[in-house]
Amino acid sequence: MSQKQQRKQLLVTTGATVTFTKLIELILHPTFLQLISSKLQYTHLVIQYGTSSDSQQLVEKLLSQIPQISNKKISFKPDGATTQTLTFPVTTTTTTKTSQTKSTSQQSTQSRLEIKCILFDTNLVANYTSKSHLVISHAGTGSILDTLRCPGVRLLVVINSKLLDNHQLDIAEAFANMGVLKFHVPFDDDIEKKIDWQGGKKVDDVERESFSDFLKLVEDVDDCEFKKIEPAKGSVIEDVILSECN
Rank of each mutant, 00 (worst) to 15 (best):
L119Q: 15
L145D: 07
S52N: 10
I237D: 06
T129I: 13
L35P: 01
E219G: 12
T92Q: 14
E207Q: 13
K97P: 04
S210F: 14
Q110D: 09
Q107A: 07
S105F: 07
I118N: 03
Q100H: 13
L40M: 05
Q6R: 08
T82Y: 01
Q198G: 04
F183Q: 02
Q41F: 08
D79S: 10
A232V: 00
G142H: 05
S103A: 10
P78Y: 05
F226H: 12
V135D: 11
D121A: 08
D204G: 02
G152T: 08
P186M: 13
L148S: 01
P231Y: 04
L40E: 10
F226A: 05
V221G: 06
K201P: 02
D205Q: 11
L181R: 03
V59H: 00
F187N: 05
G80N: 11
T17C: 05
F211D: 02
L58V: 06
P67Q: 06
I118Q: 09
Q168D: 10
Q100G: 11
Q57A: 12
V46E: 02
D188E: 15
L45R: 02
K4Y: 08
L11F: 13
I74E: 05
F32R: 00
T109K: 15
C117S: 14
D196T: 07
I36K: 13
L28T: 04
H167C: 15
I191S: 06
L113E: 14
L145P: 04
T91G: 01
G234Y: 00
N177H: 08
V240T: 06
L155S: 05
Y49Q: 05
T51K: 15
K77Y: 10
T104A: 02
S70W: 00
Q48A: 15
L148V: 09
T93V: 12
T104G: 04
D205N: 09
S64H: 12
D204Q: 11
